[in-house]
Write a protein that binds this DNA or RNA. Structure first.
Length: 475
RNA sequence: GGCCCCAUCGUCUAACGGUUAGGACAUUGCCCUUUCAAGGCGAAAAUCCGGGUUCGAUUCCCGGUGGGGUCACCA
């Protein structure tokens, strides 16, 4: 039975990198009809923020990465908040102490720091010397009398440990490289290595799929599993997602949280699809791929282990693809939070507007600047009205005649189109010049959705009014 | 510094040891077109370097270089 988990720390909003890891865990679990578990690692109160946990939970749901067990859904292996599991770790420590696989270390932080500095000075890997490994009874008594509060260290054997990462192959590390490490603090609380290992054991995790920064963590965990006499899960590691410049994706790059992208008007399907392409390929030319298809075809073994760079342009393209796949009705709903509030209630208009802008926006937020002119027209430079060698006299004439023609017709797209095409042709006006002038008069801008359709939506009255305004400006 | 991971167009990637090294985004040319898009057809663009193994290396091995990670009573 496949059981995987993600264990984010609620110290920030759901980061794209965490979402990437969550996605791959999700796909792997679903592909194998297994369970995807959400555990919140809030063991450190200083790094815990309710609002962040809320954001993480909401963002995962928004992306469609629903978990089978965990925070807010429950399950048989809870609690799923690490802060509620703190008392579960010490018994394991006692067990290790009793079998002499772990021991108390009385060294002070100052002594340890000094030791590390010395090793660094000698260009050696800084690690614990093993000073308290085999203390005699009198020594222990003396340290206790000095009031020293001991930590607990695992007795690390001199040997190499290895594991097979499904995506990377065999990874071997010499345990002598890190020495006896601390598993419990002097106040008897567990460190991450231990807490995480025990949580995974108790939650019967079969595969831990996480960021590559944890590769160096695995040997320690393996040793812990061995000491505890428990079969370890399979460990797989995903590469990081870096910013476009190759540095770490951080706040100075702007939006780094999934919710930031949601707010900017990206669709969950698009973010899902984009993240999927970072490290996994469908192996054929088509890159737009549905969640169902991804679940069906996902293989951990074929995950690419290169570092990834986040490419906003590709995300934009994918987002545009998904926007175009929406029906007018769906898109109308989606853009509501972004557009001028006066437009929101006009459902008939909105449907037509949605169809007009569908091929022109890459994010939902872009709907606003593109549709604002339907509500009100801003001031514009009268030079904008002049296009392709036109002069103000011609322009005045064009505006006047347009107004007369449009004022006399039945307000429908077909008749509007007919009337304006005819007008342009009979007077032998330059099409580009004439229609650009109209466009500016009606919208105040040179880049807009299609003109005739926009007029229809705007309505006769407002159109004629704007033509008047333009005439005023020209005069 | 020790250890670990990684290395194909600018970016994301594909290629049982044999391909004109394929695709996508971005860039760019043309077409369509009343703007902008969308769409169609093209172009340019890559196997980090050096040794092996092999009839033949993008692919396997070794070394180098580069990038990243990790070495706490943080997570």
């Amino acid at each position: 039975m496949v059981r995987v988990r993600i264990a984010p720390t609620p110290s920030g909003k759901l980061h794209l990198g965490t979402a990437h890891t969550a996605l791959f865990n999700y796909l792997f679990a679903k592909h194998h009809q297994g369970s995807f578990i959400l555990r919140i690692d809030d063991s450190d109160p200083k790094r815990t923020d309710q609002a962040c946990e809320r954001d993480i939970v909401d963002s995962l749901r928004w992306l469609g990465l629903d978990w089978d067990e965990g925070v807010e859904v429950g399950g048989d292996y809870g609690p799923y908040r690490q802060s509620e599991r703190m008392d579960r770790y010490w018994p394991y420590v006692e067990k290790l102490l009793a079998s002499d696989q772990a021991y108390y270390c009385y060294c002070t932080p100052e002594e340890l720091a000094k030791e590390r500095d010395e090793m660094r000075a000698k260009k050696l890997a800084p690690k614990y010397s093993g000073h308290c490994r085999d203390l005699t009874k009198p020594q222990i008594t003396e340290y206790r009398q000095q009031g020293r509060q001991p930590v607990v260290r695992l007795r690390v054997p001199d040997k190499k440990v290895f594991f097979v990462d499904p995506a990377r192959g065999k990874i071997e590390v010499d345990a002598r490289g890190f020495g006896d490490f601390v598993i419990a603090r002097s106040d008897r609380t567990a460190l991450l290595v231990l807490a995480s290992t025990i949580d995974d054991i108790e939650m019967k995790i079969s595969h831990t799929i996480r960021g590559e920064d944890y590769i160096n963590f695995v040997p320690r965990q393996l040793l812990l599993f061995e000491a505890l006499g428990i079969k370890p899960p399979i460990f797989a590691h995903l590469p990081f997602v870096y910013a476009a410049d190759g540095s770490k994706l951080s706040k100075r790059h702007g939006a780094v949280a999934v919710s930031d992208y949601r707010q900017l008007g990206y669709l969950p399907e698009a973010v899902f699809n984009y993240l999927l392409l970072l490290g996994w390929s469908p192996g054929e030319d088509e890159e737009i791929i549905s969640k169902q298809e991804a679940i069906k075809r996902f293989k951990l073994e074929q995950v690419n282990t290169n570092a990834h760079r986040f490419d906003i342009k590709k995300l934009n393209w994918i987002n545009g693809v998904y926007i175009r796949q929406k029906s007018d009705k769906e898109l109308a709903e989606l853009i509501k939070p972004y557009i001028n509030s006066k437009l929101k209630k006009q459902n008939v208009k909105l449907l037509k507007i949605a169809s007009l802008i569908k091929e022109r926006i890459t994010t939902l937020a872009e709907a606003k600047p593109m549709t604002d002119f339907f509500v009100a027209i801003g001031e514009y430079d009268k030079q904008l009205l002049l296009h392709k060698k036109a002069d103000f006299n011609l322009l005045k004439q064009q505006l006047q005649m347009t107004k007369e023609v449009l004022g006399a017709i039945d307000w429908q797209l077909a008749t509007i189109t007919q009337a304006l095409e005819d007008l342009c042709q009979t007077n032998q006006w330059h099409k580009g010049q004439f229609f650009m002038a109209l466009r500016v008069a009606i919208t105040g801008k040179t880049v807009t959705p299609p003109l005739f359709e926009s007029l229809e939506i705007l309505g006769k009255e407002e159109t004629l009014k704007r033509l008047d305004t333009a005439s005023e400006i020209v005069r």
